[in-house]
Write a protein that binds this DNA or RNA. Structure first.
Lengths: 246, 246
DNA sequence: AATTAATGTGTTAGTTTTACACATTAATTC
DNA sequence: GAATTAATGTGTAAAACTAACACATTAATT
């Protein structure tokens, strides 16, 4: 920090007032959050959608969202929506991108901060009774309301990337899972097939799986071992440097 | 998309009106963009900062930003700031994160969408005459105004990650550069030392560098060859799949 | 008891990364 | 202008990682 201070008090006051008057004037920009809530069920990646309640998008599905309250942090707004719609707290939530095209919302200028959330569908079962709320297989997610298709695509791509570099996937699985479950999850999210033996080797070599010495129950084949993910160990040993690769 | 349509027109109208009234009411959230503008000069990574014009942050440095105009896209607002402050168009610009803590701005509720920009410092030279605008060596960037330190840290980390996976760095260099320039850039951004021979091998094996058959001029040692980055080839051949690694 | 379909474990060849050494070139020094 | 210096430019070998592939084991089912 070098250089002299040429502070102009008039300028200070003006700019503060300018901002304040903007904040208080009408013709303002509204702010919302939208959540792309992913689940994993029957070996398929799902997303939770609700019917649009706008005439313009009659019959279309849309993401779960709401306006941000004036005294509410962005993350808090996203958590509120999640709690409201799934009954769940303490879920994985990550801000992804903010969409603000001038004409993206028919009701006026609404900028939306979008979040990606991963939940364990076993845990909720709750507010899904709501007739307008449904889990959609992500391969069937097309033609959403507003710009929600674009938002969904962005969040899905982000998930595909993040799951390769961070242990997010476990948020979609039960605490105890088999390696087959884990591979099915990766194959569903990344839309690819992987070699079972190499997949297994990869995860064992990372050494973040805890063998809890239990087996799958009620499976119509030889039961596999169950594991938990060792978050503590991961936090200590996670890699910092990767290298140039593009 | 299955399920019958139980559209409730009253509900539709209500919710639309609710949003519209929110948009038009006062006590609204203001929206700004802030740009973290990186440059590379004398083998050091730099960031362009301006003196805060708020009394509360007298003497502190802050990022370049402004309120988003009611009929302006977010990206357009970021480009406007860049053009205004550096005179440059057609620069690398990427949205990074949106910060919206309730008390982050002393003038009221201001949510800010932050962008990372990479420019070639050779190209501008222009509006830098402004006494209040300075390039700061990033190692000396501490204690910025508002929550700008957090924003800067986030954008810098993002840059560190992105430069390993995408050819962003070339935006900070002249069109023609030596491999030494390129390595210095990577070492500055990633704050690390690399083996010169392996770095060289890595980039040659990617095969995205065009040997333009020119040499460095006016260097006080054996001049190195100059290269350009082959964006066309990169766009065709860039890798999609990487693999699980964390 | 035989069959089936999954889990669980190696092995090998190929590729990539890392560590490290020496020859070459042009500016600088004497 | 010859010797010195400090950079560029190239190569090699060990180690680590990835990808492709085969067989034994287990438990449910027939």
């Amino acid at each position: 920090m070098s250089g002299e201070l040429n502070t102009d008090k008039v300028k200070n006051v003006k700019s503060l007032l300018a901002i304040q008057s903007e904040v208080e004037s009408s013709n303002k920009i509204a702010l919302s959050v939208d959540c792309v809530i992913f689940g994993f069920d029957e070996n398929k990646l799902k997303v939770l959608l609700i019917r649009s309640d706008l005439k313009k998008y009659l019959g279309k599905w849309s993401l779960l969202g709401d306006l941000v309250r004036p005294s509410e942090d962005l993350d808090a707004a996203a958590y509120r929506i999640l709690k409201q719609r799934t009954g769940l707290s303490d879920v994985y939530l990550e801000q992804v991108h903010t969409f603000g095209s001038v004409n993206r919302h028919p009701a006026g200028r609404v900028v939306t901060v979008t979040y990606c959330s991963l939940i364990n569908v076993q845990h909720h079962k709750l507010n899904i009774l709501d007739n307008e709320l449904h889990w959609h297989d992500i391969v069937n997610v097309t033609d959403l309301a507003f710009d929600h298709q674009q938002i969904f695509d962005t969040c899905y791509k982000r998930l595909q990337k993040r799951i390769q570099e961070h242990p997010l996937g476990f948020n979609l699985l039960p605490k105890k899972f088999s390696l087959r479950d884990l591979q099915n999850l990766y194959e569903a999210i990344l839309d690819t097939k992987m070699d079972r033996r190499n997949f297994r080797k990869k995860f064992f070599s990372m050494d973040f799986l805890i063998d809890i010495d239990e087996m799958e129950q009620d499976v119509p084949h030889r039961p596999g071992k169950l594991y938990k993910f060792n978050y503590e160990k991961y936090e200590k040993k996670k890699k910092k440097w990767v290298g140039i690769d593009f």
